[in-house]
């Protein structure tokens, strides 16, 4: 699966969440704001108001703010895997958030989306998210399945 296809399929998944501004393109995810809102819905106790408050909402074209937001999202996700799921993702190349912020790199964006997806399908209320995925178009489900399988192959308790 190409990075394009992975990102587009995971964008379709992102659009199933009730977000303040529904992203219409992968580009709109590169400021980290929508991803942070998804994490707050997935695990509100972990990604709490204090954490969300550190995400800057008015990003505009400022790539430094994008990097800062994306770093917080990535660190939060990795902490969630360690502290809540009790898993480490070994051999999974962590997304380079600078490349996402500076040049909207789809390969890196795909990896970050994959990690957020992993939080959703492993969290306490995963049924809710998995059932939504099971209602999606077959091609999207297939892309999501591949993304999860790749992550699962790197998980170490």
């Amino acid at each position: 699966m190409s990075h394009d296809e992975l990102c587009e399929s995971l964008l379709t998944w992102v659009q199933t969440f009730n977000l303040e501004a529904n992203p219409e393109t992968v580009d709109e995810l590169t400021d980290g704001v929508a991803l942070s809102q998804i994490l707050c819905q997935i695990a509100p106790n972990f990604f709490n108001a204090g954490w969300y408050g550190r995400i800057k909402k008015e990003v505009g074209d400022n790539w430094r703010i994008r990097v800062s937001n994306l770093k917080k999202v990535l660190e939060g996700v990795l902490d969630f895997y360690n502290d809540v799921l009790g898993q480490q993702i070994r051999d999974f190349k962590h997304p380079d958030v600078s490349k996402i912020a500076e040049r909207r790199d789809l390969a890196e964006m795909g990896r970050l989306l994959q990690l957020v997806l992993g939080c959703a399908v492993n969290c306490e209320h995963k049924e809710e998210y998995i059932n939504v995925i099971m209602g999606m178009e077959e091609s999207v489900q297939h892309a999501v399945m591949n993304a999860i399988q790749e992550l699962m192959s790197k998980e170490m308790p």
Binding site: L85, G86, N122, I130, M134, E138, I148, P157
Partner: peptide, 29 residues
Amino acid sequence: MDAGKPGATNEGVLANFFNSLLSKKSGPG
């Protein structure tokens, strides 16, 4: 070799996968 094999990407495969995810225990331990 499996190209075109019926059922390789069908609903059953997807349902099996997601149902197995549902039955997987969440969280550590």
